[in-house]
Write a protein that binds this DNA or RNA. Structure first.
Length: 914
RNA sequence: GCCGGAGUGGUGGAAUGGUAUACACGUGCGACUCAAAAUCGCAUGCCGUAAGGCUUAAGGGUUCAAGUCCCUUCUCCGGCACCA
């Protein structure tokens, strides 16, 4: 047996697999299909680092197992090559983006090749290939025809670094550009927008149909879509019934507490343009505020506002309410105006306090009167706590005041108060006392008298008077409990509850009141979304041209489908112009075309599509990559969709929202047959550098897979990628870890040297069959790390065995093959001959060998493990008890005690209570 | 602030409510060797000479039995964030 020489072996097999077409997907097959998909990469100029391939390794392992299990596997790869980074890279290196992309793809492909991945390269796609983006443009046209693509002149996010407009999804939550980190500004400009909001509700609802998606990703999408249900209500201004102020609120039940109207600066500006002659002071304020808003800044700003000089009328209370223009209401949220309810909204509360606006309480907590009381733990504390629990009084360890260990915190409600008092009276001694540290019912402020609370306070006061003799010297209690203390508290109550000060609605619950009030003030219930329509124009060169022609006579004219694709022209200068126009605008021979309708000279749309366009549907093209007549053949689509498992990370709210949107649109138009593209999503964790930071060229902590593979070999690299930790969890790259998996591969190599034709040790047979079962399940569930550990256990068993049969070893090689395709293929070819291990049939585990005749289980005495016993796996309780009671170790612990309970859980444990 | 995820040896981590610390790294000792590397064997949670005791962020609860379920609190990571 030659020593393990990974370099020779890897090269040899990679070439042979390629030549034999081992991984090509059959076009017509009787086998069940399996579509395994990676999020395709952006071929950046930096090449891959060791953090990238983890997902590719996972799909590689998964698809290899599926192929061996008899599935017709589609495991393709492609390139998401349009967009800013490629273009910026090209500008920086003074080459054409197409050339840069070609170079980068070649490099990525070579790197992937070194890892021994099983992609079917005959189906490779590239979003920048005109034959591909013809269909991206085609989908845009379908959307245009359905009214889902429209022109807009709204101010949008503008990145001064990238010199282009951006979608909301491209802006980080700190207001910087996702790509270059520049501060994003607001800039008004003409752009194409996709009406993603029309699909918001369906995208939200259908998340519930995706049980195999990680909860976190679904939650991120729910947040992003941001549905809120509430009411739109008009506040009229005396004498101007034709100009009501429309507000949006999720809490119409608090309307009687609305003491002012707060209007966004953006809305005020609109009023100027429809004829409001506001004083200069107000106009200045609006301009100043808008300028501040234009620079997205999420640092907490102080709330400011200015009185508009007129009042509206609260439609519920008929009271006049002043209209304020403020900086804390956003134009693009809700209707851009709100009713200010300071008693029940913290932001309104803050604003009202600053400008001395009146505060009117209209909600009181329902029947959940709650006080928090601190009780130092009493002498027989277990007893006291048990009794508290019996009485249904919740308690917790107190964390503040004195020391943690000495006190507990008790939550009291109206219902359990009497019981609590009784209990304390029973247990209290002169060293113990009770302190009230707060109550959730403290809601009151100055002029807003919370009368219901006062009633309760009287009640409380009376109750606690009864304690007086018991708590003498504890003045805390009286201080905390005086009415004055409560009345000076300045808090607002945000929860729902019962209505007060609300006319005929008094006494209703918040829930009841909502509908009734909206109806009585002539409002209507509506749903609002945080999700905004998708800004789809980029003022850059390197993207799909938007297939639209602007004609002076005919207006906006879509390019006829027969003329697709609209290809990017070859140009000298593709750098952004910075004027808000695409560089394409300067190429007159491309821009000027006859109008398809009237044939007079017209101009092409010069904006291009964002990077996310191609990736929103690319997976469909793998199914039918060369079809020039349709996006995808209907029969092939039916055969291959859904994607059985989709693997990637980092795109919870961008790509995965856009792709779901496009897929649903295609479904509605009969192009695809499923409502969701990816029923199972496996999200992967990053691999961080050794220093715990993200790998990046600028930090100088990048580890290249090429070097690691050169040193340790692709198989050890692949095994380590899978072994490093749970797949979905962030992991840190540790070069030492590679040593372990390399040793393992070498160990397998050594075992190959000792296989014989005799039967294996029983131990080996058993472990092998358990491992086959475990590895099959683990790969299916993406638990690769425990699969690798199972391999190691099996290898250790085989190495120390006296005999390992050729057949058993071959089975081991087969289940290991998805992880270590090169070395297993090499060893397999020596034992088995010509046919590739990767097309061999996945071994089955022999259940008979997995079931053990005897099991060793632990024996607990009073909850502690004191001994263990080996018994038949089907032993009865009587047999077991007989044996157990005679074990010296057990007898020692139950000596002189009565055995109260003997619990026998077959194959698990014996538990004795004495 | 809201939502989601997590907290286990020196390190990465394992464990359908049933013998916590599998597997690997690291470390120590030993074998082989003139020597070293590689490899192999043994040991390795903490306290204790031992018997034994303690231990899954902290505290409490349910249970014969809790890393796992429930309550309270803390910390870290991620998403959203003046969203009305």
């Amino acid at each position: 047996m030659n020593p393990y020489d990974h370099k020779t072996i890897e090269k040899k097999w990679q070439e042979k697999w390629e030549a034999d077409g081992v991984y090509q997907t059959a076009e017509n097959s009787d086998k069940p299909k399996q579509f395994v998909l990676d999020m395709f990469p952006y071929p950046s100029g930096d090449g891959l680092h060791v953090g990238h391939p983890r997902g590719y390794m996972a799909t590689d392992v998964y698809s290899r197992m599926k192929r061996m299990q008899g599935f017709n596997v589609l495991h393709p790869m492609g390139w998401d090559a349009f967009g800013l980074p490629a273009e910026n890279y090209a500008i920086k290196n003074k080459i054409h983006p197409r050339v840069a992309v070609e170079e980068n793809i070649a490099r990525f492909k070579k790197q992937l090749g070194l890892m021994g991945v099983d992609y079917d390269w005959s189906r490779e796609i590239n979003t920048t290939d005109p034959a591909f983006y013809k269909w991206t443009q085609w989908i845009f046209l379908q959307m245009y025809h359905k009214g889902l693509a429209y022109e807009s002149w709204e101010p949008i996010n503008w990145c001064p670094g990238c010199q282009t407009g951006l979608a909301n999804e491209d802006v980080e939550s700190d207001g910087t550009c996702e790509r270059c980190g520049s501060k994003v500004e607001k800039k008004p400009m003409r752009q194409w927008v996709l009406k993603i909001t029309e699909y918001a509700d369906r995208m939200l609802l259908d998340l519930d149909k995706l049980p195999k998606w990680p909860e976190g990703v679904k939650e991120a999408q729910r947040n992003w879509i941001g549905k809120s249900e509430g009411a739109e209500i008009d506040f009229l201004m005396p004498g101007q019934p034709e100009h009501p102020i429309k507000i949006f609120t999720t809490r119409p039940d608090t309307i009687f507490g609305a003491t002012f109207i707060a209007v966004s600066a953006g809305l005020a500006k609109e009023w100027f343009s429809v004829g409001w002659k506001a004083p200069q002071e107000i106009q200045d304020y609006v301009e100043k505020t808008l300028a501040e808003e234009a620079v997205k800044d999420f640092k907490e700003k102080e709330k400011t506002g200015i009185y508009a000089g007129f009042d509206a009328v609260n439609p519920a209370s008929q009271q006049p309410v002043p209209v304020w223009i403020t900086n804390y209401v956003m134009k693009d949220v809700g209707t851009g105006a709100i009713m200010g309810v300071p008693a029940h909204d913290e932001r309104d509360f803050e604003f009202a306090n600053k400008y001395n606006l009146s505060i009117k309480q209209v909600i009181v907590p329902g029947n959940k009167m709650k006080a928090v009381v601190v009780v130092p733990t009493l002498e027989n504390d277990t007893l006291f706590k048990k009794e508290l629990q019996k009485a249904g009084i919740g308690f917790a360890l107190a964390t503040s005041t004195i020391s943690k260990r000495e006190q507990i915190r008790v939550e009291l409600t109206k219902e359990n108060l009497q019981e609590f008092i009784d209990l304390v009276q029973k247990h209290i001694t002169e060293n113990n006392w009770v302190e009230i540290i707060g109550s959730e019912n403290i809601v009151v402020k100055k002029d807003a008298v919370y009368k219901d609370f006062l009633n309760q306070a009287d009640e409380w006061f009376k109750k606690f008077q009864e304690w007086e003799p018991l708590i003498q010297g504890q003045k805390n209690l009286w201080d905390m409990f005086s009415k004055n203390t409560f009345l000076n508290e300045l808090v607002c109550y945000r929860e729902s509850g019962n209505l007060v000060n609300s006319g005929k609605f008094d006494g209703m619950t918040s829930e009841e009141a909502q509908k009734a009030i909206v109806e009585s003030v002539g409002g209507k219930m509506v749903s609002k979304y945080k999700l905004k329509d998708w800004v789809f124009s980029r003022q850059r060169y390197w993207g799909e041209p938007i297939p639209i022609i602007h004609c002076e006579k005919c207006g906006v004219v879509p390019v006829p489908e027969a003329d697709l694709p609209v290809t990017l022209p070859e140009v000298e200068s593709y750098a952004p112009t910075g004027t808000g126009e695409s560089p394409l605008a300067n190429i007159s021979e491309w821009v000027n075309v006859p109008c398809p309708k009237c044939n007079e000279m017209a101009k092409r749309e010069t904006n291009t599509m964002p990077q996310w366009a191609g990736s929103s549907w690319y997976y469909l093209r793998y199914i039918d990559p060369k079809n020039n007549a349709a996006l995808v053949d209907k029969d092939k689509e039916k055969n291959w969709m859904d994607v059985d498992v989709y693997v990637g990370g980092d795109h919870a709210t961008r790509h995965l929202i856009y792709a779901r949107f496009w897929h649903k649109f295609l479904y509605d138009n009969g192009i695809v047959s499923t409502e969701e593209p990816f029923p199972r999503l496996e999200f992967l964790g990053f691999i961080l550098a050794h220093d715990g930071q993200k790998m990046s060229k600028s930090k100088g902590n990048v580890i290249s897979p090429d070097e690691v593979i050169a040193q340790f070999g692709a198989d050890a690299f692949r095994l380590y990628q899978m072994f490093i930790g749970p797949f979905e969890q962030t992991a840190m790259w540790n070069a030492n870890g590679m040593v372990g998996t390399l040793r393992f591969v070498e160990k397998v190599w050594r075992i190959a040297g000792k296989v014989a034709d005799e039967a294996s040790d029983l131990e080996v047979q058993k472990t092998l069959n358990k491992t086959i079962k475990k590895v099959s399940e683990d790969i299916e569930g993406f638990k690769f790390n425990t699969a690798v550990s199972a391999f190691m256990i099996l290898a250790n068993t085989m190495e120390s065995a006296t005999s390992v049969s050729k057949d058993d070893f071959k089975k081991f090689l087969q289940i290991l093959a998805p992880f270590a395709p090169h070395s297993t293929e090499e060893l397999w070819s020596g034992l088995h001959g010509e046919k590739s291990i990767h097309t061999s049939a996945w071994p089955r585990s022999d259940e008979k060998l997995i079931t053990e005749d005897t099991v060793t289980i632990g024996i607990q005495v009073n909850g502690k493990v004191r001994a263990e016993i080996e018994i038949a796996h089907d032993a009865t309780e009587a047999e077991v008890k007989e044996k157990v009671m005679n074990i010296p170790e057990v007898m020692k612990w139950i000596e002189g005690k009565e055995v109260k309970k003997f619990i026998f859980i077959p194959k698990k444990i014996i538990s004795i209570v004495a």
